[in-house]
Design a protein around this nucleic acid. Structure first.
Lengths: 259, 259
DNA sequence: CCCGATCGGTTCGCTATATAAACCAATGGT
DNA sequence: ACCATTGGTTTATATAGCGAACCGATCGGG
């Protein structure tokens, strides 16, 4: 692994539950030498990608990342486009919807919308790392991802988030085949207990999966009517988002609606 | 300069007018060796910070930057807080307002708001690099920045964006002193012709300048009344923003309003 | 009040790593 | 048919990164 990759890998240890990390913690998390981590972080700091908070000397993400994100949005306006799609989707289904994107080898939730209609709802966080197994978004992405990548994911130890999580690679492979033929993934309580979620893939300009659009509802509210409505709304929303970001579905993606 | 800094410096060549850059262009822009640039970009690509667009093989910013930005906002919600402040400021003054932040050694505009009241307005772009000389935001930041940094900026060749741009370091030093005593900077046509702008500093938790809040108006609309109203509104907005992000002004900052 | 355990940060000799020049193959314009 | 581009690759060389050991400061407990 090159120096640059090492430095950037340090940034992956930041997440919502860990917005500030001290030098020693980072060395433990990364397994690298303390001097190495220090030097890398110093360089990242010089460029403004991380900064040291005032009181203790722990690191947090710096302002420079905002500039890059603004430019990325200018070039590829996925987030701003998705916000409209998500809002419509939540209005239509009455449930929480969210978008997750495949970034490198991990799946991150990046944007979400709640429905104003219902008091109880599934809460979401942005910038949260999703597992591939156990989430409908993860499964649908895996189903349409590069087979080598899918196998790589399945070859690693799969943690069970809930008693419902399916962790057997064979069982998962079978489910993936089913998803490929239907074009939509369903998960019941595989990531959070009592959460029932559907997900459809989102494709990029090169016809590869770039992420997933999902609707998550409390299992108790999944009536027969909802089980009809949600998949239909999701398929439409997924196709719309894919289209509006200049993407297109691969030939093997089942298109029951030729929009 | 370390390898990591070199790699990250490549990202600075992306801006609004240049969202995609080819390998050879990047080599020329950076002055580095082509093989070096190639390897660095390959590493950045592996981590998802840049990606290669479909048709030609030019690079553009990748999806990973969105994750970082979302986390940065979660840790330090400058942008979301600023949007409210900017909107209020534009409503109150009837003109375009914007926020710029000091990132590393450069000043970037990052967020803006227009007034709904007037048809003609000064247009703004986010993620645009501002010069220190010639803009009110740049001058006010320089006035409150580390003196060594200010001198470093002034020691470099200063380009004249318009015939009105002041490029004489001595003259600028004199203006900076004036800004320090008044707490506000004014610029007339120094960056864009016929644009009259005011700016106040924004301070971080360590009492250092982190950026500037500015109001930009067509010079033709700068009546005596506006020349009263805008600075007053700006001072209030600046103090509010500094406060709401947990910052505080240094002792030498003129506070005529003890809020 | 001292001791041991942390913390962030630094030093230095060794070596792995990044670098630059030269070289491809593939386009594309003239 | 040519030359000037493009993105990408090779290889000997030297530079930049590496890790073990070492600081001083801080903190909590005995």
């Amino acid at each position: 692994m090159g120096t640059v990759s090492k430095a950037l890998s340090l940034l992956t240890y930041f997440d919502h539950s860990r917005t500030r990390i001290g030098l020693s913690d980072l060395t433990r998390l990364s397994g690298m030498n303390k001097a190495t981590v220090y030097r890398l972080m110093s360089e990242l700091q010089e460029s403004g990608y991380v900064e040291q908070a005032g009181d203790d000397r722990s690191y947090r993400l710096g302002p420079q990342v905002l500039r890059l994100a603004a430019l990325r949005e200018a070039a590829v306006p996925i987030l701003s486009v998705s916000r409209r799609v998500l809002r419509d989707l939540s209005d239509e289904t009455g449930e929480t919807s969210h978008l997750s994107l495949l970034q490198g080898r991990q799946l991150n939730s990046l944007s979400h919308a709640y429905s104003p209609r219902t008091a109880t709802k599934v809460m979401m966080e942005d910038a949260k790392v999703l597992t591939f197994h156990g989430t409908s978004s993860g499964m649908v992405v895996l189903a349409y991802a590069d087979p080598d990548f899918a196998e790589e994911v399945l070859s690693q130890p799969l943690e069970a988030r809930t008693p419902e999580t399916v962790t057997d690679p064979q069982e998962i492979r079978a489910q993936l085949a089913g998803i490929r033929s239907s074009g939509i993934a369903v998960s019941v309580g595989g990531f959070e207990a009592d959460v029932h979620s559907h997900a459809v893939p989102v494709f990029g300009p090169d016809r590869k999966v770039i992420g997933a659009l999902a609707v998550a509802a409390p299992a108790s509210r999944m009536t027969a009517e909802q089980k009809q409505l949600i998949p239909a709304a999701l398929r439409r929303a997924g196709a719309a988002l894919t289209h509006r970001i200049g993407g297109s579905a691969p030939a093997n993606y089942p298109q029951d609606e030729t929009a």
